[in-house]
Design a protein around this nucleic acid. Structure first.
Lengths: 330, 330
DNA sequence: TTGTATGCGTTATCAG
DNA sequence: CTGATAACGCATACAA
């Protein structure tokens, strides 16, 4: 492996000159500069990152913890993170929750043992549960899609607003007896969307009636069952907001089987903009997240923190965007 | 940050003793051993990885290049890789193709600059194109889902066999006039599945007739168009093998619109086992890949290579598994 | 504008 | 069984 001294010898200068040429941290005469750069090129010199890290007390690396990388949303976050990180000269060290039995504490210890300059934690939507959260970390941390008690900065989708816009959209498309098929009651993503929906209805002088709410488990199956239950409770329902596209797909399937035409007799609105939403037999109206942007934003946040900036707001809400398709056409 | 000398002081021994206790590379008396371990615990000592890397000439890190991490398949590969890598004490450095405009060479240079001990390249299925492949790397490399000219080891799905089994399955479920909706002609995944299908038909005394083949672009839309074309060319078609589930979904949509009942009048078989295949209005029979296992296997391969083993076969085929659902029920 | 010398924290060689 | 010491490759404080 070629070292800085080799380059120095080749260029006929001292190692420190080579170092300074490369870092630009002190003035160098154009002549020697050229010579050094030429030598670097000729020998194909790349600084040894371990030596740099040892010397600089910084690995130039950011840790990315993805609770479940095989979940598209987490995977898309990482793209945004990567773009910003690499641009700033940082590498990404990867750790997934699955390998640590979703024990964030252990995963963080692991990342931490690598002396990273910062850590980003990206969580899947609809995820299983509270975070058994870590002890004191001595590097900046930003979380995506999960607010964390201890006051770390987090980047979150604005679920409340999404739910509100869902309500507005269903009302605008002509529905008046509107139901909700959600996830388990303890999941913020679901309950906040429900709250948003309720507010939109209230503003319109309507209530989100108890009997028109079914809480399932985010699955397609709970869309099927949920829709049946809702129609039993109130056969006049003409619009359903589903907590995600899986549930919406199930609801549409069930509606079709029961002979209710979507969207003519029943509007169905999903969330997440999964790939299949676009080409479902009845294309599903839904909300899409700016997932890469969320990754990007969180990385920018982290870089600020790493620079020592102290940023005021700890929670950063990112809006989702309504995607209009046939399932809610009026 | 606590260093090895601190631990040594705390335990009343020399740094070298601490090092040896931790590495187990030379005999240590039980007494000092205990004392050292106790000190390590008390001070919460973690060796500085940069110093280790500098000294050991190895970063204990593996590079993972994912051509497109937001593609579920690549994402699931990484899980298998991670499991094996971490178990062997390696960390994962991440780089995605998108950030390098899919220029594998540049991405590899990047990873390489980190002096990694090995590199895994995972490619998406159905991907855009030939690999502009890298110059001489001085560390072991294994690719997933893409054979590479220069003789690197690669782990590939057995598409030929998948196509063959698709043909057998369609025949067994009663179809005799069987068509194929594929991807672009230059994609090995598609053409190999087609070849496998053709062979299964031939063994049965049937031919995969030209007019019963439509080559699209892997999308849902090409399933729609493809099925129409196929039915125009031969209204008697009673079975279609689609190159993936998107295409199969489109084919089912089109069939339904044309009044052909699936599976009663037409069997449709997909590939990939996408999430929606399971709950498509007509659940889609398909093939699932052992994606994590492929990741695992490639990591094991890489570790062997890193140990200096020289392994004979360069290409390792992994079979996919038929998943029987309603779309091909007899 | 350039060069010399030191230390980052670890491991391993050599001596005891 | 244990300890002192050198070296890994770099960046910088200091000297010129």
């Amino acid at each position: 492996m070629v070292r800085i001294v080799d380059v120095a010898a080749e260029a006929g200068v001292s190692p420190s000159t080579v170092s300074h040429v490369l870092s630009g941290k002190r003035p160098i005469s154009e002549a020697t500069r050229e010579r050094v750069l030429e030598a670097v090129r000729r020998l194909n010199y790349v600084p040894n990152p371990a030596a740099q890290a040892l010397r600089e007390r910084s690995a130039s690396a950011i840790g990315f913890y993805g609770s479940d990388i095989s979940e598209t949303f987490v995977a898309r976050n990482i793209r945004g993170v990567e773009r910003v990180a690499r641009h700033a000269g940082y590498h990404l060290l990867f750790a997934s929750g699955i390998e640590f039995d979703y024990d964030v504490g252990r995963a963080l210890d692991f990342l931490h043992s690598r002396r990273l300059d910062g850590i980003i934690l990206a969580f899947a939507f609809n995820e299983t549960e509270p975070i058994p959260f870590p002890r004191g970390l001595d590097c900046p941390v930003v979380t995506i899609n999960r607010a964390v008690p201890e006051g770390y900065h987090s980047v979150l989708p604005d679920n409340r607003r999404g739910g509100y816009e869902a309500g507005r959209h269903l009302l605008e498309s002509g529905a008046t007896r509107i139901g909700f098929i959600g996830g388990p009651p303890n999941r913020p993503a679901s309950s906040e969307r429900q709250l948003g929906l309720a507010r939109a209805l209230e503003e319109h002088g309507l209530a989100l009636e108890e009997r028109r709410v079914y809480l399932g488990d985010y699955s397609q199956g709970s869309g099927v069952i949920g829709l049946r239950r809702l129609l039993e409770a109130d056969p006049g329902i003409d619009g359903v907001f589903c907590v995600n596209d899986f549930t919406a797909a199930g609801a549409i399937n069930a509606a079709t089987q029961l002979g209710r035409r979507v969207p003519e007799e029943l509007k169905v609105l999903g969330y997440d903009d999964r790939d299949f939403a676009e080409f479902w037999p009845v294309p599903i109206s839904t909300f899409s997240y700016p997932l890469e942007e969320m990754g990007q934003y969180s990385a920018e946040l982290l870089l600020s923190l790493m620079r020592g900036d102290s940023l005021p707001e700890l929670t950063h809400y990112i809006p989702s965007t309504l995607v209009r398709r046939r399932s809610t056409a009026s």
